[in-house]
Design a protein around this nucleic acid. Sequence first.
DNA 1: TTTGTTATTCACCGGTCGGTGACTGACTGG
DNA 2: CCAGTCAGTCACCGACCGGTGAATAACAAA
Lengths: 219, 219
Amino acid sequence: MPSANAVLKKPIETPVEPEKRIRNRAATEQAILDAAKRLLAEEGFQNFGINAVARGAGCDKQLIYRYYGGLDGLVEAIGTDLGSWVKDRIPDDTGGMFLLTYGDLMERLALLFLDALRADPLMRRIVAWEVSENSEQVRRLSEARSRALGSWIERMRGSLVPPKGIDAVAVNALIFSAIQHLVLSAAVGDQCAGLALKTAKDWEKAATALRRIVRGVYG
Amino acid sequence: MPSANAVLKKPIETPVEPEKRIRNRAATEQAILDAAKRLLAEEGFQNFGINAVARGAGCDKQLIYRYYGGLDGLVEAIGTDLGSWVKDRIPDDTGGMFLLTYGDLMERLALLFLDALRADPLMRRIVAWEVSENSEQVRRLSEARSRALGSWIERMRGSLVPPKGIDAVAVNALIFSAIQHLVLSAAVGDQCAGLALKTAKDWEKAATALRRIVRGVYG
DNA sequence: TTTGTTATTCACCGGTCGGTGACTGACTGG
DNA sequence: CCAGTCAGTCACCGACCGGTGAATAACAAA
């Protein structure tokens, strides 16, 4: 029976607006962009393609070619949107604290980043995509993300400087790597390297460990 | 022109043995397994499928169904093989050092793991796969990997115990997460969060930062 | 109304996918 | 010599993919 073929990933593919689609280019463009982001966030990049996006947006795929020049252009548009991610999701101020030392700063940045990534499925998918493929598409996205993140850190950093004798770039790369992989791992399987990551209590443990690591390096 | 369709990922798909395939089940099974691992390591899980493996093994896909019960069974076989990964790739002894403290141990483990992962493309792909999908296939693989890794750590640990008051499970999860994401990131784009990871010198920096982090927590 | 513009849809193409059933051809035991 | 077993091949199926060219439907200006 060839029906076994169909694992049939058919959650019925609800279009965003099943009602009448009236002639409105701007709205359609937005619907496409939204559908793309939604699909990417919910399904991941595995089944991300022209057909899927068109289906999700409830319009013909031809419009994606016309309005965005294909999937690449669409991804680029997502990347552009992404520029506003940081300022939407992560607070810009110090939360009323006084960040006196570089260690204070990094602790706060790390915890903010952890929470922000936990709360944003799209961002997680993009991070996962980044370490899984090397296409032009994902490279663009990756760049946009890293730029946004970098500028956020720069803004928060103010005039604080890392302690002498510490390669802050390398250390911070490791710290942010840790956060990203931890969150990705948790999003897929509710655990990471034997550490359960389900309940709020679990996450508190992770946050404590993260603090400890940051403080261990920066004091 | 529909030829634009074909981005034509055609490195000519060299079969392992282009010469005569003589009747030899064991050899064919091995060829399939090897092709699968090779494909996974070199191409990633994106284009990993029955057809690709059969092509790579130079045999008909029907044999994969016959011998392994389909892709799932094949992946499971890879997972079984994986059990021997650790003892093949990572030394079991202390390298002549005396590991006096838990910090000594973790520093050595971290650096060993970093190098091992850097040297093993298949393992990297699997790690990337783990954080990108949640299918049954990858779950099996993930389990096999984590079990192998856990037992290795247990074996190396000996009688050393982490310092009191430190949640070693959480801290170690973060440390290993950091390593994994760093290596994955480097494998894709030769850098991670602004840290270049190309030359041996770059990696030495990363290793130093890693040491610093471990020592910062465990002393 | 007519004419043109623009948004949107439709039909179709070549390919690849996972999967299946029937086939070929070599070796083996009786 | 023949029947059975078993490795391996082949042709085909339906589904979906990315992509394109032409048709259609709604609107605006004349």
